[in-house]
Amino acid sequence: MSIMSQTTVLDRTPVRDESLAVRLQDVTVRFPTERGVVTALERVSLTIPSGGFLTLLGPSGCGKSTLLRVVSDLIPATSGQVEVLGTTAAAARARRDIGFVFQDASLLAWRTALENVQLPLEVGGRSKRGGARDARELLALVGLTGWENAYPHELSGGMRQRVAIARALINDPKLLLMDEPFGALDEIKRDRLNEELLRVWEETGATILFVTHSIYEAAFLGQQVMLMAARPGRVREIVPVDLPSPRRVALRETPQFIALAAHLRTVLEAC
Rank of each mutant, 00 (worst) to 15 (best):
V71S: 07
E122A: 13
E187V: 13
R199W: 04
L56V: 04
C62G: 08
T254D: 10
G124N: 13
D172E: 13
I208E: 04
T47I: 03
L197M: 11
E217A: 11
N171Y: 14
Q223H: 15
S79H: 01
L24Y: 01
V235Y: 01
A230P: 08
Q224N: 12
R12Y: 00
P32S: 10
S127W: 14
E217T: 09
F100D: 02
L56N: 06
P173Q: 08
Q223V: 02
L141I: 05
I208W: 04
R12C: 01
R167Y: 10
N194I: 02
E217N: 11
G58Q: 10
V123W: 07
R136Y: 00
V117N: 06
E180W: 08
Y151Q: 08
L243Q: 03
A94E: 13
T212E: 01
L68E: 02
P244D: 04
G86F: 02
L67N: 01
S45W: 00
S245Y: 15
T145W: 02
D179S: 07
P76A: 12
P49F: 09
R199K: 15
M228L: 15
L107A: 11
G157S: 07
I238M: 08
D11E: 12
I98M: 07
L169V: 09
D73F: 02
T87Y: 05
R96I: 12
P76T: 04
A166T: 08
A230N: 09
W110I: 10
S2I: 15
E203Q: 15
G158R: 01
R190P: 02
R265Y: 13
A262C: 03
R35N: 14
S72W: 01
V29T: 07
M228H: 12
R265D: 09
L177E: 10
I208V: 15
L185F: 11
A94Y: 13
A218D: 01
E196A: 14
K174H: 13
R96C: 08
D179R: 04
P152T: 09
L121Y: 03
V44Y: 01
V38T: 13
A113H: 11
I208Y: 06
R35D: 13
L227G: 01
L85F: 00
L67A: 04
L108T: 10
V211N: 11
E180F: 08
Q161K: 12
L155S: 09
G124V: 03
L119V: 07
